[in-house]
C-alpha cells in the first residue's frame, strides 16, 4: 500500500504565562492510501489536536513541531501560505462533531456547498450549483433540490452531518479527517453516517482518519487503530488484533471498562480504571499511564514511549508487555 500521510515525533504545546505545557508528546502516525485509521482516546489525550496538525490548524497559543509531517511525500511543515491553502482545500477534507457551528446560519446550505466548489475547485456559479446538487445526492440526501434551499437550522443533526460531509469531499480529497463525526447523533443515525463514510471511501479511494472516544465506533469502521493516552500513541495495530489482544495495559483496561449490551442481566461490576486521566501540565517523564497501571514498575517512570513491534504492524509503547511477550516467544519467563 502506498503511504499517504506520515507523522513522526509530533509535539504540540500550549504557551501560558508561566511557560508551556506539552499536550502531544512525540506522536507517530501513518495513514496509507484508501484505508481507514482510527485514533481513539479519552478527552485530553491529544487526539483532536494531533489530527489538526495534518492541515496545520492550531488553536491560538498552540505551537506544533515535528520531525516530519509528510503528505504524499511532501513536507507539510514547509508549505508556504498559498501552498497550505491549496493543501487544506484540495488534499484534506475535515468534518467535526458539531456540524451546526460549522455552517453560516444565515445562508442556505446548498449555497454553502456551492460556495466551497466555487472557491476551492474554481467552478462557475451554474456548474457549482449543479455539482452541489449531485454532491447532496451522493451523501444520500433525498430531494436535494429542496434541501439545497434549506437553512442549517431546518435540518436534523444527521442531515447536517451529511451536508458537512458533502462539503468536505467536494474537492475530492485524498484524506477525510472525521473528528468525532457521530458523537452528537443517535445510534441509528450514527450507523448510517458511518456507512456513508465507508461507502464514499470505497468509491473514491480516499483514506479516512476517524477520531473518536468510542472504541465501538472505531472497531466497526476502521482497519487500523492508534490508541492515545496522555499525548502519546500507546498502542497501534490492526483493529481486530488490538481489540482481541490488547498489548498495552491502558488499552486492555479501557476495553474492559467499555459497557456492553451483552452484559445485560449479568450484574457483574466492571473494574474500571482507578484514578483520573492525567493533567498534561502535571505529567512528568515516562509512561503517562504509570500512575493508574496495575502492572507498574519502577522503570516505567523512565520509559521513552517509543513504539515496540510485537507482531507485524502491531506496536506497543509498553516495554513490560513487550518483554513478557518476547519471553514467551523464546520460552523463557523473566
Amino acid at each position: 500500500m502506498t503511504q499517504l500521510l506520515r507523522i513522526e515525533g509530533l509535539r504540540i504545546s500550549f504557551a501560558h504565562r508561566t511557560g508551556s505545557t506539552d499536550v502531544v508528546r512525540g506522536l507517530d502516525l501513518e495513514v496509507n492510501q484508501g484505508e481507514t485509521v482510527g485514533l481513539v482516546g479519552e478527552s485530553g489525550s491529544g487526539k483532536s489536536l494531533s489530527c489538526r496538525s495534518i492541515i496545520r490548524l492550531m488553536p491560538p497559543h498552540a505551537t506544533m513541531s515535528a520531525t516530519r509531517v509528510e503528505f504524499e511525500g511532501r513536507d507539510v511543515l514547509g508549505l508556504s501560505r498559498t501552498e497550505l491553502r491549496a493543501h487544506r482545500s484540495r488534499n484534506v477534507g475535515m468534518i467535526f462533531q458539531d456540524p451546526f457551528s460549522c455552517f453560516d446560519p444565515t445562508k442556505r446550505v446548498g449555497e454553502q456547498v456551492a460556495e466551497t466548489l466555487r472557491v476551492n475547485v474554481g467552478l462557475d456559479r451554474d456548474a457549482a450549483r449543479e455539482r452541489a446538487l449531485a454532491l447532496l445526492a451522493s451523501v444520500d440526501i433525498d430531494r436535494p433540490e429542496q434541501r439545497f434551499r434549506a437553512y442549517p437550522h431546518e435540518l436534523s443533526g444527521g442531515m447536517r452531518q451529511r451536508v458537512m460531509i458533502a462539503i468536505a469531499i467536494s474537492a475530492g480529497p485524498k484524506l477525510l479527517i472525521a473528528d468525532e463525526p457521530t458523537t452528537a447523533l443517535d445510534v441509528t443515525t450514527q450507523a448510517q453516517i458511518l456507512a456513508l463514510i465507508e461507502q464514499l471511501r470505497r468509491e473514491s479511494e480516499m483514506a479516512v482518519l476517524l477520531v473518536s472516544h468510542d472504541f465501538g465506533v472505531i472497531a466497526q469502521a476502521c482497519d487500523r487503530v492508534a490508541v492515545m493516552y496522555g499525548g502519546h500513541v500507546v498502542e497501534a495495530g490492526p483493529v481486530d488484533e488490538v481489540c482481541a489482544q490488547p498489548r498495552h495495559p491502558y488499552t486492555r483496561a479501557l476495553l474492559e471498562s467499555i459497557p456492553s449490551v451483552e452484559s445485560a442481566g449479568r450484574r457483574v461490576r466492571r473494574a474500571g480504571i482507578p484514578g483520573q486521566p492525567p493533567n498534561p501540565a502535571e505529567l512528568g517523564p515516562g509512561c503517562p499511564f504509570a500512575e493508574r497501571c496495575a502492572h507498574v514498575r519502577a522503570s516505567c517512570r523512565e520509559v521513552d514511549m517509543s513504539l515496540i513491534r510485537v507482531t507485524e504492524g502491531h506496536l506497543t509503547a509498553c516495554p513490560v508487555v513487550a518483554d513478557s511477550l518476547g519471553a514467551v516467544a523464546t520460552g523463557v519467563r523473566p
Binding site: 465501538g216 482481541a244 502492572h295 511477550l325
Partner: peptide, 19 residues
C-alpha cells in the same frame, strides 16, 4: 436500536500473557 449499537469485539483470549 440494538442492531445499530456499535460494539467492540468481545475481549477474547483469556490465556494472553499478562505482565
Amino acid at each position: 436500536l440494538l442492531a445499530a449499537h456499535p460494539r467492540p469485539m468481545a475481549l477474547a483470549d483469556a490465556t494472553d500473557p499478562e505482565p
